[in-house]
Amino acid sequence: MTPAGGDGARTTPVRRPTIKDIARRAGVSESAVSFALNGRPGVSQGTRDRIRRMAEELGWEPNSAARALSGERSGCVGLVLARPARTLGVESFFLQLVSGVQEVLADRKVALLFQVVEDIETECAVYRRWWAEKRVDGVLVVDPRAHDPRPELLASLDLPAVVIGAPAPGEDTPHVSSVWADDTAAMASVLAHLHELGHRRIVHVAGMPGLAHTERRIRSLRTEAARLGFDGSRSVTTDYSDAEGAEATRRILDEPDPPTAIVFDNDVMAVAGSAVAAERGIPVPGRLSIVAWDDSALCRVIHPRLTALVRDTSGFGRLAAQELLDRLDGGPVRSIQAELPHLEPRESTGPPATL
């Protein structure tokens, strides 16, 4: 038999307070408690205040499932990420984005339900399940892509949504709001910087193919390269991981006429590319200039420090979360452009060695 004290003592699990507990403490009926906590008429203001005070003292919180059954909000929004899980631990973008989202949701005491899945089909299945179970009041949608089935599905479910990122060209999303940054203009600013330094052979190590922002950056590189007269500039796609970023860099540097500059679609790949250059004895920026798409602490602590596109990613998340809350409060569908990322030149870019 377990003794009543010491390390082996059993503890009684803390039981969640119920409406019955509040009624007993306040000396009223359970129906009166229900009326008071749900803001319905039928009790005096004094009784309502006493019941709410007792509920707060007991630490009572409304049950989300019960609220959903009664037609009330669940107090939760969802975010599903259809990407390889292995890429999440090394990329800072989503951590900063979610921190901004959570900052806004916390102020409104709204929870964030987050799930990682393998593909878009599974993501759509999650939305259907959340809708059927009334698990979430709305969703944040990331990584818009060409022929994206998600906006139409969410519209058919009447589930409020905000897409983080612009839709693919020619694909309107009239039923969902969007918050986006101008990737086309951002890429143009990178190429303008490299062109001014004298670079003409540039390769873009892009992210996942099919994503709207990946395709937009690829098109911008192609358009600006033609306009500026770059030779052999192109894009290669990856999964955003350091491993694929490093492997792509090795292939690029093994070419007979390698580029004088590489633009990487995130900070992790840029750091991996810099490491590949170092292991091959290629000085940066003496023989190879490197640009990272998203700035982070990694870009600022590596030597040489990496030239990077800087934006307030947490602010991007805050903007998206606020737009979703506005939609839940009855606001209109909108398309909101976030602040344009600006290029911060550092030690990883300089004139090519031929100059």
Rank of each mutant, 00 (worst) to 15 (best):
G39I: 02
L309Q: 11
Q115F: 01
L157E: 11
G100H: 04
T238Y: 13
I19Q: 14
V205W: 00
I51V: 15
F230T: 07
A85I: 15
D137K: 09
R318I: 07
A338I: 00
P285N: 03
V284N: 00
L298V: 03
S44R: 03
V141T: 07
A248T: 11
V80L: 06
G89P: 10
R334A: 09
H175S: 15
I262G: 03
L211F: 11
V110Q: 02
S99Y: 05
A353P: 08
R53F: 00
D119T: 08
A188E: 13
E344V: 15
H147I: 01
I51S: 04
I336A: 11
S177K: 10
S70P: 07
R334F: 01
A320L: 02
E279Q: 12
P41H: 00
A55D: 06
A206E: 06
L325T: 06
D326Q: 07
A248H: 00
E133R: 15
E339L: 09
R334I: 02
R10P: 04
A146N: 03
P149V: 04
G39Y: 04
H193E: 13
R86C: 01
A23R: 10
R53E: 15
D148R: 01
A246I: 02
K20C: 02
L340Y: 09
S189A: 15
R86P: 01
E61C: 05
G39M: 12
S99D: 14
R250D: 09
D294L: 01
P160I: 00
P3W: 00
I336Q: 07
T184I: 06
M187R: 03
D329C: 10
F35D: 07
F316K: 02
I290G: 03
A146R: 15
S178M: 05
V190G: 01
R200S: 07
E171G: 01
T2K: 12
F230H: 14
P332Q: 02
A4D: 15
G59T: 07
V43W: 04
V28A: 00
E244F: 12
R251L: 06
A65S: 14
T12P: 02
A85F: 14
Q115P: 05
L306I: 13
A297V: 15
L159E: 11
Q115V: 10
A212I: 09
H303S: 15
